[in-house]
Nucleic acid binder design. Structure first.
Lengths: 220, 220
DNA sequence: GATTGATCGTGACGATGTCAAGATGTGCGC
DNA sequence: GCGCACATCTTGACATCGTCACGATCAATC
């Protein structure tokens, strides 16, 4: 769990305890986890952090400010995880698959962050730090696609493919709940998150007018 | 604009004016459009409809109830538009492309509905009417993919491909704003919604390890 | 024409976001 | 060592919101 919370000094617990922003951010994540983004409230965050109801407002200005901080943290985590997932894998196609699985791993392990990261309506979307963090994570993906173009197909529209991959993963994250309810409604055996990722990446890479490669799972 | 609002009787405007639910639903859409899903409130809806602040609660029980009604209406519209988009197109692959463009057309023309349709946290996700409406829309997509399998590739995993397409379109809808800001940040010429759809469907259909077919646009 | 039920309004309560003003520590110059 | 400016946090207040109970109003039916 890299960079979940910046290295925390032993918490002086004084009046001005110095790292309230970090504590509040962590508390916000827990509130989102417990009550959902809908039941989220600054006052609840303040209660869990053991401070007054207006303390969050001082540090983050706004409810959007706090959620934006959570989103930025999420993008940093995503970036680190994508880099980590692709490290040491030579074949760029395999690296792309690994990155895809890294994406959903972040979505699974940090659901609170992911609930916020793309919800421009609840966060201050014009925050440059937010844009930077998102751009950095996207850069990892685009670089991998560029490597695929280098090795396999120079005509590959790198930008389009990268966006396709991102859109697909993002849509999957959002629709996964619908898919499981759809599976249960049609009494099919439910398809897991990871399985969806593998099948999607296979489909994208092989193209659906050509013969499928048969759900090859990537060896860990 | 099929089934935007059920055929409206001339509005008696009396005390019990009979179709308040429809009026409230339309008002809710306008509030979402104006203030965003974040600034949405039942009282604002009531104000626009010219009724008391508790009237929405009577008909929809909950704020979730009203938003769920909007989402159901959105899924109906989506279903109708998907059917309409694919009608008369023989080649199922071309039909799939047309459906993809129908999807984003709905997203563009009914942004308020689409803001709500997949946000399970703000609506009562266990409403069977909601599930039915979503399933009906999805059925159009799956049927088209099944037609592709029939004609081109019997081994095609229909369910997976259908979900891939849906995920991709849904992700695109959600990320489009990020893409344009990304374009402007890198000072590229912005890519339109429709262009994204065409490129994505081309990429999915052709597969990214094979030669691209060069952004063929479908003649209308 | 009275009654029953659906429909809608009124009033109230607790909770929330946000602001202003005050309280409380911290660090810096001297 | 001391006072002062500042950052940090609390307190209090206000408008708004969702939701509930209760009352008012209308429509249809017997």
């Amino acid at each position: 769990m890299p960079r979940a919370v910046p290295p925390e000094p032993p918490l002086p617990a004084t009046y001005h305890h110095g790292n309230l922003p970090n504590v509040l951010r962590a508390a916000a994540v827990e509130v989102i986890l417990d009550k959902g983004l809908n039941g989220f409230s600054l006052r609840e965050v303040a209660r869990r952090a053991g401070v007054s109801h207006a303390a969050p407002g001082y540090h983050f200005g706004d409810v959007r400010g706090l959620l934006t901080a959570v989103a930025i943290e999420g993008f940093h985590t995503l970036h680190d995880e994508l880099v980590r997932s692709g490290a040491g894998i030579d074949d760029p196609i395999e690296r792309l698959k690994a990155i895809g699985r890294g994406y959903v791993r972040v979505a699974i392990e940090h659901p609170a962050h992911c609930d916020v990261m793309f919800r421009d309506d609840v966060l201050s979307a014009d925050d440059p730090a937010l844009a930077d963090a998102g751009l950095a994570a996207y850069g990892v993906l685009e670089a991998t696609v560029a490597a695929i173009a280098d090795r396999y197909n120079a005509d590959l529209p790198v930008q389009d493919v990268a966006r396709l991959c991102w859109s697909t993963m993002q849509g999957l994250v959002e629709l996964q709940s619908k898919f499981v309810s759809l599976d249960s409604m049609l009494s099919r055996t439910p398809t897991s998150f990871d399985e969806h990722v593998d099948r999607f990446t296979d489909l994208i890479i092989n193209g659906l007018t050509h013969r499928q490669s048969g759900r090859s799972r990537i060896p860990r």
